[in-house]
C-alpha cells in the first residue's frame, strides 16, 4: 500500500501526510558523533546562506565566516550564523517533527549543539549548510522516533491539523529554492521520490519506508541512493 505521496508542487512540501512512524527507539544517540563530510562544493551558497554569491570561495562565504568566528567563541558571530541558517534548521526540524512547539524546542537544542561543536567544524569537510542540516535532521529524527513524540504525531494526524508551514513572511529566495527542489523531485521516478521524501521529510527508516511502499527493503535502499544521485545532478544543472 502506498501510504503517502508527498506533493511536489510549490507549497505542497508543507502538507506532509505521511503515515506515522511506528519506530520505537527512545534512546537517542548524541548528534555529536556526526561524522565529518566532504563538500561537493566548498560552500553551497544556494542552500541557507541567502547572502552568499554563486562562485564565492569559502573565505568569502558569509555563513562559513560566521561559523568560523563562532568556533572561536564569538557569540555575536553565532548570532549571525543563527540568522543565516535558522530558517532551514527550523524548517527541516518542523518538517520532520510536525509539532511547532516541539520543533521550537528541538531547534533550540540543535543550535546549542551547533555552538558546542562549532570549534570542531572543518570547512574543508563540507559546507556549513550541510553540517548544520545534518545535525538538525538527525536530532529531529531521533526525537520523533521516541515514543512520546510518535504519540504526539499520531494525535496530530488524528486531528487532521495542518502545520502552518508556508509562512507568508518567507523570503522569495526560499520559495525559489523550494521550486528548484520541487522541480528536481518531480523528475525522479515515483518510487525514488517517495523513498527519498518519506525517509528525509517523513523521518522514517528505510525499513519502514519499504513497508509503507510495499516494496523490498533492498529496493528502498537502492531507490534512495539513485534518487539522491539524480537529485544532485538535477539541482547542480539547475543551479549552475
Amino acid at each position: 500500500m502506498i501510504a503517502a505521496v508527498v506533493p511536489i508542487t510549490l507549497g505542497g512540501l508543507g502538507s506532509n501526510t505521511a503515515a506515522q512512524s511506528s519506530a520505537n527507539h527512545p534512546k537517542r544517540d548524541s548528534i555529536a558523533n556526526v561524522k565529518p563530510f566532504r563538500s561537493r562544493k566548498p560552500a553551497a551558497p544556494n542552500v541557507a546562506g541567502r547572502s552568499g554569491q554563486p562562485g564565492a570561495t569559502p573565505d568569502q562565504d558569509p555563513v562559513a565566516d560566521s561559523l568560523r568566528r563562532a568556533g572561536n567563541g564569538d557569540h555575536e558571530a553565532f548570532g549571525r550564523f543563527y540568522d543565516q541558517t535558522a530558517a532551514v534548521v527550523y524548517g527541516i526540524v518542523l518538517k520532520v517533527i510536525r509539532n511547532p512547539s516541539l520543533a521550537e524546542e528541538v531547534t533550540q537544542e540543535v543550535f546549542v549543539e551547533l555552538w558546542r561543536l562549532a570549534p570542531r567544524y572543518d570547512p574543508t569537510l563540507g559546507s556549513p549548510q550541510a553540517w548544520s542540516a545534518t545535525i538538525a535532521h538527525r536530532r529531529a529524527v531521533d526525537r520523533v522516533r521516541s515514543e512520546q513524540a510518535a504519540r504526539t504525531r499520531e494525535e496530530r494526524d488524528a486531528q487532521h491539523q495542518a502545520v502552518p508551514h508556508d509562512n507568508v513572511t518567507e523570503e522569495v529566495v526560499i520559495r525559489l529554492d523550494h521550486e528548484r527542489v520541487a522541480s528536481a523531485l518531480g523528475q525522479l521516478t515515483e518510487i525514488q521520490r517517495e523513498a527519498v521524501t518519506l525517509a528525509y521529510y517523513g523521518g522514517h527508516t528505510y525499513r519502514h519506508v519499504a513497508k509503507l511502499l510495499d516494496v523490498s527493503e533492498g529496493t528502498v535502499k537502492t531507490r534512495i541512493r539513485d534518487g539522491l544521485v539524480r537529485l544532485r545532478d538535477l539541482m547542480e544543472v539547475n543551479y549552475d
Binding site: 561524522k35 563530510f37 535558522a86 534548521v89 549548510q129 550541510a130 538538525a136 529554492d177 521529510y201 537529485l231
Partner: peptide
C-alpha cells in the same frame, strides 16, 4: 555520504520556514 549530505541539505533548504521570533533570544 559526503555527497548525499550536500544534496540532503538542499532538501532541507526547500523546507525552510520562519522560526518563532523568541527562539533566537532563547538560543543566545
Amino acid at each position: 555520504v559526503n555527497d548525499y549530505r550536500e544534496t540532503a541539505a538542499e532538501l532541507a533548504g526547500a523546507a525552510a520556514a520562519t522560526p518563532p521570533p523568541q527562539l533566537k533570544t532563547n538560543v543566545m
